[in-house]
Nucleic acid binder design. Structure first.
Lengths: 138, 138
DNA sequence: CCGATATCAGTGTTACTGACATTG
DNA sequence: CCAATGTCAGTACCACTGATATCG
């Protein structure tokens, strides 16, 4: 049953990833938001949520954490005062690189001896499934 | 980042699967335990936990639910009185088939237009990852 | 005494829901 | 008036931890 395999694999992945991130005091949400800011530049919270598939409510808490660590800055958008513009700081940039290197190690451990072509096909399929549901799933 | 894709896919999968199961009043744990009983016959709770990768504590609650619905029976093993032997009832057998058909539909929706060979390769890789960590992860 | 089993109580994370005030 | 945004409180499920009692 593929769905069971997917969730089992995800459980395993989450255990490894969470443990690795916990050692540097981060969470998956922290990484996702930092990476999105690095890729797309200053972004509103609602937009961050859409890009990372994270709920608006959870973005609030995540950004609170990141502001506290001086990894991002939150300021009101003067053009649309409903929105907060979140920007990555230099410290945040370094933080992201650190977290990414930790995740690289974890990834290698997770995928172990899977040969590269199979690994790439696997990633392609994951991406295809997600893309296929991109419209229906926020 | 593969691990991010895996967890995103799992989130999507869980949303679809949980929604489908909720409509028939079931959970993923219910399905896993019923399926394990169908495959392996009467089993102790600890063994169920190992087979399904579910914690012993959670097996207790799951079996409680299933006993309440008359889907399984729990009785003490006369050979080893520490153990409860859990057996699938006829009602439970029907329940399992019903849930499985619901999941089949969900699965088809999830995997959408992925061609069969790619689908099989995907499942193979999932299995390989899980097997590779079978020793380290209970 | 040690190990395995079942149970219970409780924790933490993730994902989500509903409500509200503010702004466009 | 309606829609979007940010915030807060609370819920549900999943995974896990620790303690306890029983039994082999």
């Amino acid at each position: 049953m593929p769905s069971w395999l997917i969730t089992q694999t995800a459980t395993l992945t989450n255990r490894l990833v969470s443990a690795a991130l916990a050692e540097v005091g981060a969470t998956r949400y922290h990484y996702a938001v930092l990476a999105a800011l690095d890729e797309f530049g200053p972004t509103s919270q609602a937009e961050l949520g859409r890009r990372c598939h994270i709920d608006r409510s959870d973005i609030v808490a995540t950004v609170n954490d990141l502001v506290e660590g001086r990894y991002v800055e939150r300021r009101q958008d003067s053009a649309d005062r409903r929105q907060n513009l979140i920007t990555l700081t230099n410290t945040g940039q370094q933080r992201l690189e650190h977290i990414a290197s930790v995740l690289d190690t974890t990834q290698a451990h997770l995928l172990g001896d899977i040969p590269k072509p199979e690994r790439e096909a696997f990633v392609t399929t994951l991406r295809r499934i997600l893309d296929h549901h991109a419209g229906t799933a926020q």
